[in-house]
Structure formats: C-alpha cells, structure tokens
C-alpha cells in the first residue's frame, strides 16, 4: 500500500553497506570456503586446456575491474554519463553546497 512506500525507501536509505567488508573482504572463516570453491573450478577448467590468447582476454573484459589482475592503472574514474546540469531540480539539489546557498542547511 501507498503509506508503506516512504517507509521502505527510508529503511533502504538508512541501511548502510558494510564498507569495511566491501574493501577488506570477508572474515577469515568465509575466505577458506571461497578458496576451496576456486580450486574446484580450476579442475573443471582442465578440459579446455589450450585456450587461444585472444579469448582469455575477452573473458577478462567481461569481469569487473576488481577481478582483473591486469586492470589499467589509472586514478581517474571516468563517468560514462554526465547529468544535465541545466535541469532546474538538479541545480536546486546542490545549491546549498555553495556559499551563495542557504548556510543553515549546509551546516549539518
């Protein structure tokens, strides 16, 4: 029902991702199981022992940059789609981040 929607949205916004886990990985107990998983997958890989180099390359491209051990070393984080900053509501949304905006709102 409609009255629940705002509640759900608020709960989702409040639920914080565990960034420590995201950055440094799972605790040790889980890691052990993850290792055994990867060894199994290696065994299944025995069938296609010879892989053309080009194909392996394509497989890496599909993965996220975190898994790719040869990801490009680049500190810039290019955004593919930039927002249209002519839009009125978008301008309003960050107006208070400037000294010309409302100072009381910005002082959180």
């Amino acid at each position: 029902s409609k009255w629940k929607e705002s509640l759900i949205a608020r709960t989702l916004a409040r639920r914080s991702v565990n960034l420590m886990q995201l950055v440094y990985g799972q605790p040790v107990s889980n890691q052990a199981s993850a290792v055994s998983d990867s060894s199994e997958s290696e065994q299944s890989d025995d069938e296609d022992f010879f892989k053309p180099k080009g194909q392996a390359n394509k497989g890496i491209d599909d993965k996220s940059s975190f898994d790719d051990i040869n990801a490009e070393d680049c500190s810039k984080f290019p955004k593919s789609d930039l927002k249209d900053w002519h839009a009125r509501d978008l301008i309003e949304s960050i107006k208070d981040r400037f000294v010309t905006g409302d100072w009381s709102k910005a002082a959180k």
Partner: peptide, 22 residues
C-alpha cells in the same frame, strides 16, 4: 560543459578531495 558537469558532480558527491585524489 562536460568539464563543468564533471566538477559539479564531484561537488555533489562531497568529501574533502575529488574522486581522482582519493
């Protein structure tokens, strides 16, 4: 316009440095 939009997006994100300098 692209450069200006990029800067505004960095400002929107917040933080004491931009994403490049993290």
């Amino acid at each position: 316009e692209q450069a200006a939009s990029m800067l505004l997006e960095e400002i929107e994100q917040g933080g004491v440095v931009d994403s490049t300098h993290q």
